[in-house]
Amino acid sequence: MGTPGTSTTMRIGAVAERAGLSLRTLRHWDEVGLVTPSGRTDGGFRLYTDSDVDRILLVRRMKPLGFSLDEMADLLDVVHRLGAGETTDPDGADLRARLDEFTTTSRARRADLARKLDMADELITLLGAV
Results as ranks from 00 to 15, higher is better:
residue 94 D to H: 13
residue 18 R to L: 09
residue 52 D to A: 00
residue 84 A to G: 06
residue 83 G to Y: 04
residue 1 M to V: 10
residue 39 G to F: 01
residue 105 T to D: 13
residue 27 R to T: 01
residue 17 E to P: 01
residue 106 S to D: 06
residue 125 T to Q: 15
residue 89 D to A: 15
residue 11 R to I: 05
residue 129 A to C: 10
residue 61 R to V: 00
residue 39 G to A: 06
residue 97 A to Y: 12
residue 14 A to F: 07
residue 2 G to Y: 13
residue 122 E to G: 11
residue 3 T to E: 12
residue 78 V to N: 03
residue 123 L to Y: 15
residue 6 T to Q: 10
residue 122 E to H: 11
residue 40 R to Y: 10
residue 102 F to K: 02
residue 31 E to K: 07
residue 9 T to C: 06
residue 117 L to I: 14
residue 116 K to G: 14
residue 123 L to E: 14
residue 122 E to P: 09
residue 119 M to Y: 14
residue 17 E to L: 09
residue 20 G to H: 12
residue 86 E to Y: 11
residue 110 R to P: 12
residue 75 L to T: 06
residue 36 T to I: 05
residue 94 D to S: 14
residue 124 I to R: 14
residue 127 L to R: 13
residue 109 R to W: 10
residue 49 T to C: 02
residue 128 G to I: 08
residue 31 E to F: 04
residue 128 G to Q: 11
residue 90 P to E: 14
residue 112 D to M: 12
residue 53 V to M: 04
residue 34 L to R: 04
residue 116 K to R: 15
residue 16 A to L: 05
residue 121 D to H: 12
residue 43 G to T: 11
residue 9 T to M: 02
residue 44 G to Y: 09
residue 21 L to G: 05
residue 13 G to L: 04
residue 49 T to D: 06
residue 37 P to V: 02
residue 73 A to R: 08
residue 103 T to L: 12
residue 40 R to Q: 09
residue 10 M to R: 08
residue 15 V to N: 00
residue 62 M to E: 03
residue 77 D to K: 01
residue 6 T to V: 11
residue 73 A to L: 06
residue 76 L to A: 01
residue 111 A to I: 11
residue 17 E to W: 03
residue 116 K to T: 14
residue 33 G to M: 00
residue 127 L to T: 14
residue 62 M to D: 00
residue 1 M to L: 13
residue 16 A to D: 00
residue 102 F to I: 05
residue 121 D to E: 15
residue 86 E to W: 12
residue 66 G to P: 04
residue 75 L to G: 00
residue 100 D to Q: 10
residue 78 V to A: 03
